[in-house]
Design a protein around this nucleic acid. Structure first.
Lengths: 141, 141
DNA sequence: TCTAAACTTGACCATTTTAGTCAGGTATGT
DNA sequence: ACATACCTGACTAAAATGGTCAAGTTTAGA
């Protein structure tokens, strides 16, 4: 299971983007400065977000990125999937030598990981970018 | 956030242990054979489980490990904590240069990770070793 | 038209984590 | 005494992480 800085950065950047989106495209440079994330790293992340149609890019001067969907339709699942943060806990099935199938006992914990995965994914599927923006406005005072 | 094989192995081994526990101590060798986990690696894991008073050890011939608590009182949280699988997602606060405090925006996603952490921990706190054993018996046919 | 801002791509890399192995022990039941 | 099983710590190969670096292409605006 992976849930690391890359996913966190992606979310931070997208929330930032959503804030300033309405008027002009937002440049990665601005996001980099505001969020304290390396520009080069942001480029890698946004390249993936673009491939997954979460953002659109506008090239040239005054260019930048724009959300490609309504913030309400961008779920955390989409974001994490885009940047390869897989919420996959079960390492059974894949190889017949290890885990589930290799031994007679038949992976005791298989059901557990399935359940956990569903649990976490549900959380992510129910949280959209819009929720985060609202949440943040409330607590900013 | 970490949730890897070590934690999975720990759970597998403990469920295995709980099954045969009633009669004699269970040797790591047996668990190793049944679950297909390296003996040396199991020893590392059980060393931690012992420090955290989840299992007891009995040395010498016919020795092995025994659960130190009722399976109902061993929660997954306890197991994961014991083997250093920390379900910690927030990397803010720690350094003033990065994340939360470094930038003016004040880490936009802070609340999210807090919430997620609670969500996952709740899942783990409500699942005991006993649940797993029962669950497994049911599905074994 | 020239240029600078901004996206685009891909290679590279240091560090850390993971998932172990190896080599010695020490304790104890038979 | 000796085999079994726990105990301890050092070591390590491979992968993941969190980036950096270099060399572009595109396009708005002066």
């Amino acid at each position: 299971m992976k849930l690391t800085s890359k996913g966190r950065y992606a979310v931070m950047a997208l929330v930032d983007l959503a804030r300033f989106d309405n008027i002009n495209p937002v440049s990665l440079r601005d996001i980099s400065l505001r969020q304290g994330i390396s520009l080069d790293y942001l480029e890698q992340i946004f390249s993936k977000l673009k491939k997954n149609e979460i953002v659109k890019s506008i090239r040239g001067t005054q260019g930048g990125y724009v959300l490609n969907k309504n913030p309400n339709d961008i779920k955390l699942t989409n974001i994490f999937n885009a940047v390869d943060e897989k919420v996959k806990t079960v390492q059974c099935k894949k190889e017949s030598k290890r885990g589930c199938n290799g031994k007679a006992t038949k992976c005791i914990t298989h059901n557990l990981w399935d359940e956990l995965e569903i649990h976490i994914n549900t959380f992510f599927e129910n949280k959209s970018l819009k929720d985060l923006i609202n949440n943040n406005k409330e607590t900013r005072v």
